[in-house]
Structures are given as structure tokens and as C-alpha cells.
Design a protein around this nucleic acid. Sequence first.
DNA 1: GTTCTCACG
DNA 2: ACGTACGTGAGAACA
Length: 867
Amino acid sequence: MSKFLIIDGNSLMYRAYFALPDLMNSEGLHTNAIYGFSMMLIKLLDEEKPDYIAVAFDKKAPTFRHKEYSAYKGTRQSMPEELIEQVDILKDVINAFNIKTIEIEGFEADDIIGTVSKIASENGLKVLIVTGDRDALQLVSDGVKVKICKKGITQMEEYDEKAVIERYEVTPRQFIDLKGLMGDKSDNIPGVPNIGEKTAIKLIKEFGSIENVLMNTDKLKGKIRENIENNTEMAVLSKKLATIERNVPIEIDLSEYQMKDYDREKLIDLFEKLEFTSLINDLKKDADDIREVKEWPVRDFKYVRELLKREDTVSFYPLILEGEVKAVSFATDDEIFFVEVDDYEEFKLLDNEKFALICHDIKDFFVNLSYHGIELKCKFYDTAIMTYLLNPSESNYDIGRVLKKYLKEDIPNIEDILGKGKSKKSYDDIDKKLLIDYLCATASKLSKLKDKLMSFIKEMEMEELLNNVELPLVEVLKSMEVYGFTLDKDVLKDLSKEIDEKTDKIIKDIYDAAGYEFNINSTKQLSEFLFDKLNLPAIKKTKTGYSTDMEVLVELMPYNEIVGEIIEYRQLMKLKSTYIDGFIPIMDKDDKVHSTFKQIVAATGRISSTEPNLQNIPARDEFGRRIRKAFISSFQGGYIVSADYSQIELRVLAHLSEDEKLIESFLNNEDIHLRTASEVFKIAPEKVTGEMRRRAKAVNFGIVYGISDYGLSRDLKISRKEAKEYIDNYFDRYKGVKNYIDSVVKFARENGYVTTILNRRRYIPEINSKNYNQRSFGERMAMNTPIQGSAADIIKMSMVKVYNELKARSLKSKLILQIHDELIVDTSPDEVEIVKDLLKTIMENVIKLRVPLVVDIGCGKNWYDAK
DNA sequence: GTTCTCACG
DNA sequence: ACGTACGTGAGAACA
């Protein structure tokens, strides 16, 4: 017999909300109710394997019970704010499970459940009701069971008729009579005064129903009789209120509630947004379909050579493992096959300008080949980059996800084949049949994927961005990675020694001050010292305790001398662990470090740098800056040439906003922060003080970040009111900026996305959120992304041009690093002037804006001196 | 694996 | 009344 599972959505949602601690995602959205509900739902689906399913919710409008009895649920607290914001998202989650929700005006979830269970029962289905509310026990009958949450979110108790009678000594139908007599505090159902569970059970067992009790009050005695006779109306009303309506006027087409597979993509997206990592992993495991392993032909490179004579475009998917390309798959319209790699020289047959590969996230392959001395001139499409352009906010662009999303196709899960973490397999241990299946299945779909993505790219007018910037950039980044940045080990060692000596002394001082030794790196132990031992005031809290960050420590400085030493210790430790100890082991035999540049990570279009991150080498603090002395040229007697865009983001803002004053400032090559100070503080430029300029600079930053008075006041440590005045003054003086910001937010609200100068796009779903925080966040993203993203567009164009120019002129000097508004070229001593000139010319003229682009060039024996 | 802190533009 | 400045990555501690 088929089973219909019907869930009381409100009840379980509340249960989850109260049972779990206050969870939050990084955007500040509370998630505990959604998380708990999802856990319960997954468990139920797994255990019950229903054939039909529905979730019922209350509807806000007053129900017939309120009309009957105005005080109904009168004592009920209104839903907490933290739960309200979860309701709609929870419904989205349920929806992503492909489960229908039912809500009906004027009825509670209970009534819907009563009605649906009745209909399902009449149609010969078994029914299981899941709720946290014992009232539902009245619905139990032959074929209808009720599951009630016991405690927490995982423990439940199942009731059939027998179980109800055992537990409550009355039948399910009599459960209503029971409640009519007892009343119900939580629903504010009055019942009969002074009759509790014990008496009620006794009466109902004896008389069978409230009506029968009322007709036979003469058989009762004393207080009980008195109470009942004086409250007959109450008893009847209470029973009515407690009775679940089983004839709600709805049409139920059972077939609509048949269990379907959940919408994997949608659910994973939602869970990612909610940051339910463990649930995502469960889903992924769960989807290890009972997929048939196909057999594919295994060929060799000789065969590939023949193939390339016939085809000018071939799909291609490599497996890189243990630092080597172990195997590859090829696919055309006509054939798909696997090739094992035993000689890198074979790849040279791909070195052909006339011929194109279709691949997914191909840079690593090119990098690997380059380390083996092989450079391929072939054209290529990269479906990962294309997918990134279509939506740069995805958390990753794994081929499996992309194929699922755009082609609704499944391929095997790579982690199952290669293993992960501790159980990661070596190439020889991999099941070849599974591997071949994976590589070939993937390659076989790339062409279709590329066509589909390309049609979207064209639709969104990002073809030029793709072809002129992002795809050519792959080779540039490859070259930067492979070439690397040379470090001077001795400089690092000397600095390390200096740091050790300083920290030794500081550690002693801190231990002396404490009177005991502890781990200063531990925020927990440090806060014990600061806030318990020294009794310093705790300034702010973190999720887990008191904060000990820089801002707090600076505030604590006046209280105790040791705080200053803690700050210094922190700075020194950071320098040592991240930039010295972190770098030495990753230097190669030539004392170079090779970062990996990520092209499909940052949602604004920037590139990022990892292992090591060369984009966050200390610069602001003088001591930390000395690390840069270790970054030197690879050339004997060579130079580091640095070229950075001056105020690129504000120039982009001037261009986008067409603000007259801002444009004028840049045309006249003014000190931009000074000018802003003069405007905001409404005084002559020569009267602007250093402090005013500093504040104006913060205002300019704020404008770029998507300003708020709160953020500015925090940064400048001024009142909200004062911050607001600055902002108002700014917008009053820079009307073009104001108009631009308003219009970009409006555009985002209406279209759901914003764009950059090169038409790069970022979606901002948060902008229409009902949650204030989320919406504000969306608005700031809408303001910031066109600015940050356009700056990224510009420097990316420059990178491609600089790289190509260095190459075209056969210069030895190499572009080795980009830091968002700055390019670094490792320069041969005989090419210094050429490189400086080339950088300045290309970068300043790479695009024509309404204001000039200005590039400052620095040059030195090391990165520190290149300023 | 998550949290805190801090490095950069 | 609400409560965050935008975009990244990495090391250490802790659970």
C-alpha cells in the first residue's frame, strides 16, 4: 500500500528553531530552523520512503477559530524576528526538494492535515502525519498514524490507535473531548476550570464524550459537577476549538503530491547560501547514482595525430595527478577515446595555431606542460571561464556541477574515483575502468556545453570580454606562475633572526606580566589573561568569546603597557609564520616561489593568488614592508619594475558617474583626497588640514565600497551623525556621483545584476531581499562591483597587452605579478628603460576613459626599493 | 572543519 | 530599530 507523508510545517519549523542553538550564515542570516527542518526532512524521507508527500503551513489570516473565540491563541507570542526571516527560505528549500506546500486562507496547518489525511485515506493510502503537536493524535485511525517529535530534532514517537489508547487511555476521537475538558494553555483554549488531565481522562473513560458527560452531570458529585454544570458552554466551545477540521474546502489531486527526486542544483545552491556544508556533502554522496560504467576505446597518440588531420576542433579533458598529466580523453562528434600519457613530447602534436581544444579549466594543464618545457600554441575554449563569466558568484566551477546545471547531464563523481583526503589514491591504485569512463564521459559533453555557454555569452554581450581578455589571460597567468618570483633566502633568514630576537624578549615580558606562561597565539588564553587576570574591559564579543583583535587591543593600550607588546608580538608572529616560515619550504631549487593565480574565484572579476598568496605581501607597515627586500629579480644584476595605477577605482568612478567635479579633479591632476576634503568640509584647499584629508580619504574609500554612515563612523571613530554629515556633504558636492550610485542600485533592483566597463556581469539577488541586512549588503555590492570590476577589467587588458608586447619584442624581462592595480615585471638590467616605458605607455592607454589613467613607475633591486 | 585574526588592493 | 564598510587568502588554535 502506498504511503502519504504529511508534515506540519509550522510545528516542525518551531521545533527546529527552539531545539537548535542560534546558527547564522556569514551574511548574518539566522538558519537554525531551516537547518533543523532540513535534517528532519532528510531523515524522514530516508526512513519512511513515502510515495506521496506534502508540507502544510498556517496562513496568517485569522482562522474560523478566531471568529468563534476571539481569545483563541491569544497568549501565543508572535513569531520571533529570527524565525520570520527563515520562513520564506525554508519554503524554498522544501520546494527544492520538489515537495509541495499547502496553505489555505482561514485554516491552520492542522486542518489541512486533517483534510488531506482524510482524502488520502479514502483513496486507499496509508497516511503518516509528522508534527510536534499532540493535537494531531485525534486524527489517528486505522491507516493513519502520527509521528510526534519527542525531544531535540531527531527523536520521534509514532502513534497508531493502540499506542494512543495505551498512552492516554482514550481513543483518538476522544482525545478532542479530553482537550475540551482540560483546555490547552498554549492555544488559550479555556476548557473547564480545575479539570486537569487526570480528571478529564477519568470522565471520558466513563462517559465516552463531552456530550455524554454533560447529559449525565447528575451522576457526578461535588466540585467537579459544579464546575462542569457552570461551564457547559465553555466545554462545548473548547471541544469545537480543539477539533481539527477535516473538511476544508480544497481540491486535492493526489497525483500532484507524488514523490519526486529533489532538484539537486537548486538544493545545493540554497544549502551553499545557507552554509550547510555537511548537508551538501551528504547530498553529493547520496547522488552517487547507480550509474552504469560504460566501456570506451583506449587509443594512443598516433591515433590522435590521425584524428587531428580530420578535425580542427576537439574536446579534451586531462587528468593531472601527482604533478603529472597521467591521462587524457579526446572527443569529437564521431568518436570518444582515452589515451594514457607516457611521453610529454607527444603533446607537441597539439602545438598548432589552426586547431582548437575545447576544455574545462585548462590553465593547470598548460602550466604543467610548461614545466616540462612544452608550450602549446593551439587555440582553446575554456568552459570553466565561460561559466564564470555567466555567473561569477558560484562557489566553484567543477565540471560535474557545470554539466548538471547547463546540460542536466550526470558524470561520475571524481572524488569517488580518485579518493580524497587520507584515502586519496595513487594513480596506479585507481580503478582504470572508472577513470576512463569519467574522462571520456566528460570530454564527450564539452562541445555541447561550449555551444550552450557561448549562446548565453553572446546573449549577454560578453563575447569580447571572453575572447579579448579572459581567454588570452590564461596564457599570461600561466607564464607568471611558471616563471615565478625569486626570493633572497639570506634576507629572509636575517629578518627571521631579527624577529626571533624581538619576540623572545616580548614573550618574556608578557609572561612576567601574567605571572604564568600561556599561548599568546590562542585568543582564548589571551582573553583569559586580558579580561580575567588584568580585568581589562571587554570591548566586543565574538561568536565564541571576547574579541582580542587589533581594534580591541588598541583601545586597551592606555590601561596597561603590556598590551602594546601583545600587539607587537602579533605583528611579528604574523610576519614570521606567514611570510617567512610559510615561504621557505615552497621555494624551488632556483629560490623561486610559484603562486597559482585564480581566474574564476573573485565575484568582481579580480584575479586571486594562492600558495603562496603574493597579493598580500606586507606594504602598509614599515617593518613588515621589509619582507619585500627579499623579493628580487631573477636576472643577474636585474631589477624589479613596478607599475601601479594611481587612484584607478576613483578614476573609474569618475568615468562611470561622469561627475563634473571628479572629472575636473583628475583632468587637473589634483590631490584627490585634498579636493574631497575641501568639498566635504567646505573650505579652501589650502586650509585643509592633514586630519581633514585623512577623513576625506576615508570618505572616498567609503564611496567606492558602497557607503554607509555606520561603516564610515566606525572607520573614523566618529559619531553616526557626523559620518552622515560627511556623506551628505559629499553627495551635495558630487551630484554626479550621487546620481550614478542611485541609478546603479536602481538598475540592480530592476535587473538583478550590475555590469562593468567590459560588460562583465555580477548577479545580486540580495538586493531585493526583505531582510534589511541582506538588502543593504546587496546595495553595497551593486555600488562597489562596477568600480572594482571595471578596474579589474582594465588591468587585465593591460596584462594581456604587456605580456604580448614583451613577447613580441623578444624581451627577456617577464611580467610576474599583478596586485589588482599594480603590475610587477622582473627586468633584465639592459631592458630597464624599455620596460618602464612599455608599461607606462600600455597601461595608460589601454582604454580611453573620461579621465586620464595615470601610472606610477618604480624600479629597484628588490620589490621594497621598487616604490 | 570552523573560528579568529590579519595581510593586501 | 536595525547593524556592515568592498574584494581576497593563510596560519594557528580549537573542537
